[in-house]
Nucleic acid binder design. Structure first.
Length: 418
RNA sequence: GGAGGGAUGCCAGAGCGGCCGAAUGGGACGGUCUUGAAAACCGUUGAGUGAUGAGCUCCGUGGGUUCAAAUCCCACUCCCUCCGCCA
């Protein structure tokens, strides 16, 4: 939810919204209904003041005067009801339009759409494809079984097996141990949440089609731990001295992947169920941009630490999505496709979702303000596995375990199946 | 799943439909006293919006009754106790 006051007063703020290519006229329509709402609200308040006073007066009055005074108050009540009705017709319009307005893009975000992000830096070489792509290699090691999974659950599901499972847990251990050092509290959150939670977290109604509905609409499977982490401090005022609050959520993630038929059909690159470690930070507004760079640095140290070649992209304004004021993607070189593919991303939402969540803090002079929220992928495990399956083949059908995972795996090499 | 009880400010806890944004106790903060501390005493102390004004809103959430609701009615959510089931 944007700051309606700033929209009216701050032309830079408005400009940042327009860079996201909102529907022409939306902002003016919104400002119009906001003005109407303010006026309606003022008259409701004035009538309420009078009605409250009239009511209190009755309590103080001697019995014989009460009937006359009740009559006065009753008339005021009717006027008030009419004014409230008028206000109630305007408010949903404000809400409806305001929810369509995205968070303004930050100044440092480039103009443009999907392919117009700026490459901030590239690290590592663009390797040639290995003998087998990630899917064939995983099948050759009997690490991923999609056929049997498809029989019992459908396409885009898989059995992850053998050393691939050990690799997953090694990655999780390594990543979480890093994040703890960086001040994150590990969290295993609920993966089933109510509809109202999905709304508060900002995923409904927009992403409803991407989400599995369980128990006849009572509960929904989350597509990311961001959902349960973001609502952790709903309607709370956080002590500014305690900020930032950093959480690292490990969870399974469930996505319908509607509209992706025929896309990324191989291996475990795009599946309905995968595990992920997600960072979520509640930050002091004064330092949220530093925090954003910090999260990016952590993501780079994870992907870089695994020895994967990657590049950092500053996503362009119109490709940012609703909530992000700025977003970096980390893309890893996928040799079999000879292109970079997204593996993690991190966004600064500023106060956009905190406003809806009611998560606040106070400035040094005691004024209430909303916190800034940021989130970033620490590690999307199935996708990370797919990348290392290509980059760490040993050339004779086996697998070299990435250095950083060796302590957790207890070995440095996995031989091919005989 | 069945049967009861409950939800009030930082915490505990009172609250007759009007004098309740809310007693009292604790805590916290400020002060007196003290070499210092404790004790004792005095004072301050919920949140949002608004201009640290007036006003308005908030006693789990949403609706209703009434001139007037923390207080009455309905629904929902959560917590506790007992029974059943169960990793």
């Amino acid at each position: 939810m944007i700051d309606l006051k700033r929209l009216a007063e701050d032309s830079d703020y408005r400009n940042g919204i327009e860079r996201k290519r909102v529907r022409a006229g939306l902002l003016d329509e919104l400002l119009e209904v906001v003005a109407a709402e303010r006026q309606a609200n003022a008259s409701v308040q004035e009538l309420r003041t009078r009605q409250n006073a009239a009511s209190k007066d009755i309590g103080r009055a001697p019995a014989e005067e009460r009937q006359a005074k009740i009559l006065v108050a009753a008339t005021l009540k009717q006027e008030l009801a009419a004014a409230e009705l008028h206000l109630a017709t305007i408010q949903p319009k404000v809400r409806e339009l305001a929810l369509q307005v995205p968070n303004p893009a930050h100044d440092s975000v480039p103009d443009g759409g999907e392919d117009e992000g700026t490459v901030v830096r590239s690290v590592g070489a663009q390797d040639d494809p290995p003998a087998l792509d990630h899917a064939d290699f995983a099948a050759s090691m009997r690490w991923v079984d999609r056929e049997r999974a498809a029989e019992i659950a459908g396409s885009r599901f898989s059995y992850l097996m053998g050393d691939a499972v050990m690799l997953e847990f090694a990655i999780v251990q390594w990543v979480l141990s890093k994040l703890v050092v960086e001040g994150f509290t590990p969290v295993i959150p609920p993966v089933l949440v109510r509809e109202s939670t999905m709304e508060e977290a900002g995923f409904f109604p927009t992403d409803r089609a991407q989400v599995y509905d369980v128990d006849n609409g009572e509960l929904f499977l989350v597509g990311t731990a961001e959902v349960p982490l973001s609502v952790l401090h709903r309607n709370e005022t956080l002590n500014v001295a305690g900020l930032p609050l950093r959480y690292a959520g490990f969870s399974s993630c469930f996505r319908r992947e509607a509209g992706t038929y025929g896309k990324d059909t191989r291996g475990i690159f795009r599946v309905h169920q995968f595990d992920k470690v997600e960072m979520f930070v509640f930050a002091d507004p004064a330092t949220s941009w530093e925090e954003h760079e910090r999260i990016l640095a952590i993501e780079e140290s994870i992907i870089g630490g695994l020895g994967l070649p990657y590049r950092v992209v500053n996503i362009a304004a119109a490709d940012l999505g609703n909530a992000a004021a700025k977003k970096y993607d980390l893309e890893v070189w996928l040799p079999s496709e000879r292109q970079y593919r997204e593996v993690t991303s991190c966004s600064n939402y500023l106060d956009y979702s905190a406003r809806r969540l009611g998560t606040r803090t106070k400035t040094s002079d005691g004024a209430s303000q909303h916190v800034h929220t940021l989130n970033g992928t620490a590690c999307a495990i199935s996708r990370t596995l797919a990348f290392i399956f290509e980059h760490y083949q040993d050339g004779i059908g086996g697998f070299n375990i990435p250095d950083v995972l060796r302590p957790w795996m207890g070995k440095d090499h996995i031989a091919p199946l005989s």
